[in-house]
Design a protein around this nucleic acid. Structure first.
Lengths: 166, 166
DNA sequence: TGCGTATATATAGCCTGGCTATATATACTG
DNA sequence: CAGTATATATAGCCAGGCTATATATACGCA
């Protein structure tokens, strides 16, 4: 290595480490690496967008394409593309909306549920070796952190202004 | 909503929630949403790959393109593309490797450090409102979880077989 | 009723960031 | 110094982002 690692603030200090700015930066950085790793250890042409979309449908049930786009944090035309792919694979079904001929309800198919479940199982199996040695306390801490963060991220899905709009 | 949300296993039960499979699934799912949200609240044409790459360089200092690819969890040709963009923007510099004329050392430039720092600040500012009300205990829990997970994810970067190789 | 506006989705066209296969240049080894 | 190994680059494909815009339907009101 030619030079020392570059690092502006003094990390490793409890006060700094508990600063929300640093926590948020670290969460985002770690999340990026996790997402990348998850994609890499599972094969197949489906990218993160596909699984994210299916997960939303599983969590919240059938919904309109536009709602799905918002909840999946993509623009509507992007979701049109993703759904087109999912329909072709028969992992979701389009149900005509009885009240509004412009809209569809998009819902998971049995096949879609199966594929999502399979993917998650593969993922967990692949990552398991890295985490097998977590103590019960560690697992509890991680679980708690997830439960703290998740509702706030969900909020971000609807409550945060998206850059480049308005 | 036409039907009930679909959910196969019985979540909300402590035994199930502490099962490593579910923790891992939840981490990956949450990470995907965080990554997406982070990208969305920061504008500019740079995608997650760019910031991930810069972050690796900041954390570990200058290194060869191939190493950088491995640590950033992408294939070498992908990193060639990313680095080409970064060089054009002058956010990194290529330093000829004295020992090996085939290789370069890739290092952050002052401009690169600045841009990365700016991006992180923007990000933290944008996400802050969602997390301002975290208690000190919550922050401590999240910080601890990050510190538990990070080294294991780093390990995954080198120690986990990538799907589709060998 | 029918016109004008609003809204839901689709299309077009562009960009980044992934990949595999392969080329090229340099290094290493017998 | 020939032959193999290795570091990066190139080519060419695909998914998944975006904005701008088209199309079809819904809605509000004179």
């Amino acid at each position: 290595m030619l030079t020392e690692p570059i690092s502006l603030p003094v990390r490793g200090d409890a006060d700094v480490d508990l600063d929300l700015h640093f926590i948020l930066s670290d969460i985002v950085q770690l999340s990026g690496r996790v997402t990348r790793l998850a994609h890499r250890v599972t094969q197949g042409p489906e990218g993160p967008a596909t699984w994210r979309t299916l997960a939303v449908l599983q969590q919240s049930g059938p919904m309109r394409l536009g709602e799905l786009a918002a909840m999946s944090q993509v623009a509507q035309p992007t979701m049109t593309k993703i759904v087109a792919g999912l329909v072709e694979r028969e992992w979701v079904k389009r149900i005509a909306d009885a009240d509004d001929a412009r809209a569809w309800q998009i819902g998971l198919s049995a096949k879609g549920i199966l594929k999502l479940t399979e993917w998650r199982a593969n993922l967990a199996t692949a990552l398991m070796p890295l985490f097998e040695d977590l103590t019960e306390d560690d697992r509890r801490t991680v679980r708690t952190a997830i439960d703290i963060l998740r509702p706030r991220i969900d909020l971000g899905t609807t409550a945060i202004p998206v850059a480049g709009k308005d």
